[in-house]
Design a protein around this nucleic acid. Structure first.
Lengths: 182, 182
DNA sequence: TATTGTTATACTCTATAACTATA
DNA sequence: TATAGTTATAGAGTATAACAATA
């Protein structure tokens, strides 16, 4: 498989935009305003090559797109991820689901309350340890999740088209490297 | 330049983990608990290939690392980006800086207040339009920004080491594609 | 009228301490 | 004594409406 060559297409090959040192003498405000620099676009070259900044902007774009797409399901990214993980791990403890998703246990209570209120998930007291709640999807939750998964597959496909051949897989692999290193 | 081949090293070539259809009959909670599935790690395969999820986790890792590194400067990512853009665009209007960074104008007021309080930036009433504030760095702001830039370059280098040869540049290019498409 | 900076406000996310019931 | 779920609460971050000064 020749992923590398495909990915190459998705990459700007030119070097970072050069942003040389500022001149030693600082200009006065009047000089700057005289230069007519108040009209055009701002110089953002200092940020465009930064991993954290580009990652944040990209993530925001993807999440906004997600929220738009999932408006018919009334699901936000965090809710979708919760349904997905419950669906793949039925009967696990509430706290296990939360921990796997990096959600604080107290904050997970309200999330589950809402999913339960909507009849998508349900808590059951464990028979073996009456402290813990086993969490599962309801039939309605399973149906909604299946529909949501289909929409999610469409988003991945659309993002794949934006990113070019091999680009989506490359992006996911690189992002995972960072997560694993954290 | 052979970015593609280098990037290939950074990519998992195996296909998405297959997550087949669930069996038609749903198991009872007792059956699940009997199966002893409450002990091991959770199945997160449904999320690991998703662009939005991996992007979010990666961005969080990078930001947490940033906050740790910049603790001596007492700068959070948003504050650093503001100083950087002001430094590269001295004398521009407050609202222009905010808009360039995607910050709402009302929320930018408190941010600038804080930077001004710390003596890092300053507002000056424009002589040509007395409604607007021209924003600039102070000498102290410039010095802090220069030191912060050096630390930021170290972070990029460290992230580059994690991402492998060409990986950092590939990640930035792919992330920018998404931002541009939004 | 429109724009700039500002205030007030509200809503979402996230983080921590402490309670309860069970173990 | 420790753990699971919960409550209360506080802090960020973000979004909108409306106002004063100015254009």
């Amino acid at each position: 498989m020749d992923v590398g060559d495909d990915v190459e297409d998705a990459i700007e090959t030119r070097a970072e935009p050069r942003r040389g040192r500022r001149p030693a003498r600082r200009r006065t405000i009047d000089e700057i305003e005289e230069a007519g620099e108040s009209g055009g676009a701002l110089d953002l070259s200092g940020l465009t090559g930064v991993v954290g900044y580009t990652l944040r902007r990209a993530q925001m774009m993807v999440f906004e797109d997600f929220i738009r797409r999932f408006a018919p399901f009334d699901l936000k990214p965090a809710q979708y991820s919760v349904l997905l993980v419950i669906g793949d791990n039925p009967g696990r403890k509430q706290s296990e689901i939360a921990a796997a998703l990096g959600i604080q246990r107290p904050n997970f209570v309200a999330m589950l309350d809402e999913l339960e209120r909507r009849g998508l998930a349900e808590r059951t007291r464990s028979t073996t340890d009456r402290r813990s709640h086993a969490v599962m999807l309801t039939e309605a939750g399973r149906r909604l999740l299946d529909a949501a998964k289909a929409e999610q597959a469409r988003q991945e496909a659309d993002l794949g088209a934006i990113l070019g051949p091999g680009g989506r897989e490359a992006l996911v692999a690189l992002a995972k490297r960072l997560t694993a290193a954290g």
